[in-house]
């Protein structure tokens, strides 16, 4: 059962983004201003400053970490600065 490549990621590949707070390096792709894919690796996960302090949410699935706000801000900056291209079709 080999898993194939996502056709979308072949057309527009991911770009490296560094977190301004912890310097974690992740791979990012945006297909619009509101769509974001983030690929972490083990080193980035270990580097994140926010994650160890995240309060678990209530409920049985509460242990998951929804997102790092510092990284989100860094991605936003990278998008605005053009380091992560955002297709400009009105979204």
């Amino acid at each position: 059962m080999t898993v194939r490549a996502d056709n979308r990621f072949l057309d527009t590949p991911m770009r490296a983004v560094e977190c301004r707070r912890c310097s974690a390096r992740v791979e990012v792709r945006k297909s619009s201003w509101h769509q974001t894919s983030v690929q972490w690796d083990a080193a980035a996960t270990a580097a994140c400053h926010e994650r160890p302090h995240a309060q678990p949410l209530p409920g049985p699935n509460g242990k998951f970490f929804e997102s790092c706000s510092a990284l989100q801000a860094s991605i936003q900056e990278a998008a605005l600065g053009g380091a992560v291209p955002v297709p400009d079709d009105g979204y």
Partner: peptide
């Protein structure tokens, strides 16, 4: 493989 278990986030743009 690492990529099977490494964190991946995908937020959809629901505008359209």
């Amino acid at each position: 493989q690492p990529e099977m278990v490494e964190r991946f986030e995908y937020e959809l743009d629901t505008t359209r």
